[in-house]
């Protein structure tokens, strides 16, 4: 999501730069009364005038205007939903001592734990989610036999123990019955 936002902002900034350059070029060309302009700029001008003419003759009740407005609403809502939902932290706190403060990449830990459980147990569709920057809340969802719960919990516990966070983390393991094909 952070990369997506950055890309969106880069595209917006580029649009602003292009629009700004175009507005400056047009105003200078008109102010100096220069009739000549490059073909691409002439084409762009004509397209813009055509679009403005069309928009000034349409009515707000026209289905094309209504469809565009509905599309804008959908796009705006989508963007708001993506931005306003809580984002998991990139790194979570591990420890602090005289030497350093120690942090862990959350997504890498989740991925490692998921692949460890798939490798070491018969669980499938494993999903590990670590939340909380300082006080960890680890949730593991997997599909498989309910009998392997103990095995999964043991692996999760030992993974946290290696990081020194087994005792102060809230762990929740959910095992769902695997669907039989």
């Amino acid at each position: 999501m952070r990369v997506f936002n950055r890309l969106v902002m880069v595209v917006l900034a580029l649009l602003l730069v292009v629009a700004g350059l175009w507005a400056l070029a047009i105003s200078i060309v008109h102010a100096l009364g220069i009739g000549w302009r490059p073909d691409w700029l002439r084409y762009f001008d004509q397209s813009l005038h055509q679009a403005l003419k069309t928009l000034s003759t349409l009515q707000l009740a026209d289905w094309r205007v209504l469809a565009s407005a509905a599309a804008l609403i959908v796009l705006g809502l989508l963007l708001l939903l993506l931005e306003l939902r809580p984002w998991p932290p990139l790194i979570v706190f591990l420890d602090e001592d005289d030497t350093a403060s120690w942090w862990l990449h959350r997504a890498a830990f989740e991925g490692m734990l998921g692949s460890l459980l798939i490798k070491e147990t018969t669980a499938v569709g494993v999903r590990a989610r670590l939340r909380g920057r300082r006080s960890w809340r680890l949730r593991v969802d997997a599909a498989g036999s309910p009998r392997m719960r103990g095995e999964v919990e043991q692996l999760v516990h030992s993974s946290l123990e290696r990081l020194g966070r087994a005792d102060d983390s809230a762990i929740r393991v959910s095992i769902h019955e695997a669907r039989v094909a």
């Binding site: 599309a71 804008l72 705006g76 809502l77 931005e83």
Partner: peptide, 18 residues
């Protein structure tokens, strides 16, 4: 923040138009 603002503007323009 900017993306949220953009979403709000799109929503406001679209909503008003509709």
């Amino acid at each position: 923040l900017l993306a949220t603002l953009l979403g709000l503007v799109l929503l406001a323009v679209g909503g008003t138009g509709l």
